[in-house]
Amino acid sequence: MGIHEKMMHIQTTLKAPKNLYNSFGNYKYRNAEGILEAVKPLLAENKMSMYITDDVQAVGDRVYVKATVKVWDTETGEWVETSALAREALNKKGMDDSQITGTASSYARKYALNGIFLLDDTKDADTDENQKERKARADKQTDDNNTEAIRAMKISKIKQDTLLSLCDEMAFDINKILASYHHKDISEITEGEYQYIVANKDKANVRKIWS
């Protein structure tokens, strides 16, 4: 039996259930350690060995960990391999640099193992969980779009008057405010701009620009 036949046997036999649970995201998952625990007996059964190596690579200002999984057939000397990349987080609360690299390594190794043993780490498209996630993403996108639309709306006459009163109270020059937003008239002020002015009226840098 050649290496590809052995790999096919392992890929169709391997059972690596998602035995870990993420309570924050409400989903089950597997990690590299779980895959290794499940595959070791199958490797021994088929007289194969496996090695995993990491390579840290810098791309621009980001750092990636490249994990390579190589499976050897001890009977024939044949081998197959696959690699996967995981990007280091710029920072992660409560972790030092070595822990951040270790986390990226764990992810890269899991993805490489998924690839070589044909493990699907995605959620089924028809599951309730997947449908809930898609609905949540769609709802969030709708909320974001609605928020942007509201921020782009021109302010009402009442808010125009409120803004003029605020300028009198804070000794702001309304013409400077209009110029900073490239407007010619107060009626062109948008809801987002109005909210910014009101929220930042007491800040020194704002007073310096508009007074």
Rank of each mutant, 00 (worst) to 15 (best):
T68N: 11
Q141V: 14
E188I: 05
T122Y: 06
F172A: 04
A84I: 01
S106V: 01
I116V: 09
R151W: 04
M7D: 06
Q57L: 15
V80G: 06
T12W: 04
L42V: 05
Y181K: 15
H4S: 13
E148Y: 11
E75P: 03
L20N: 10
L85R: 02
A104L: 08
N146R: 14
A44M: 08
A58R: 12
A84F: 10
K66V: 15
H4E: 11
V69A: 06
Q57V: 15
K154I: 02
G25R: 01
A125V: 13
E188P: 11
D73N: 11
A152H: 05
V69C: 08
T53S: 15
E191V: 14
K157R: 14
N146W: 02
Q99F: 03
S98N: 14
I100N: 07
K157A: 15
T12I: 06
T122E: 10
I158E: 15
S187H: 06
H182R: 15
K176L: 14
N91R: 13
N91C: 06
Q141F: 02
Y21W: 08
D54G: 02
N200L: 11
N145C: 07
Y181R: 13
F117D: 05
K123I: 02
I3M: 02
E88H: 11
R109W: 01
S23L: 04
D143C: 05
Y196Q: 12
T101W: 00
I35P: 01
N205P: 03
M153G: 10
S49R: 13
K201M: 13
T147H: 12
A84V: 02
L90F: 12
D124L: 03
K184R: 13
G34W: 03
E37A: 15
I177S: 02
S211R: 09
E88M: 10
K201W: 12
E45W: 03
K159G: 04
M48E: 01
S180C: 07
D73Q: 07
K40I: 12
M1N: 08
E188C: 03
G115V: 01
T162K: 12
K18M: 07
N19W: 00
R30Q: 05
T142M: 09
K135S: 00
T122N: 11
R151F: 10
D73I: 01
Y196K: 12
G102T: 02
G60Q: 06
V56S: 04
K6W: 07
V80N: 09
L14S: 10
T190M: 07
S106P: 09
D54T: 00
M1F: 11
I150G: 05
S187L: 03
K92F: 05
D139C: 02
K176Y: 06
A89F: 09
K92Y: 07
I116P: 04
K123G: 03
I174N: 05
T190C: 10
W79G: 06
A89L: 13
H4C: 09
L90Q: 14
R137A: 05
K40P: 04
N145T: 14
A108V: 01
R62N: 13
L85F: 15
R207Y: 09
I155T: 01
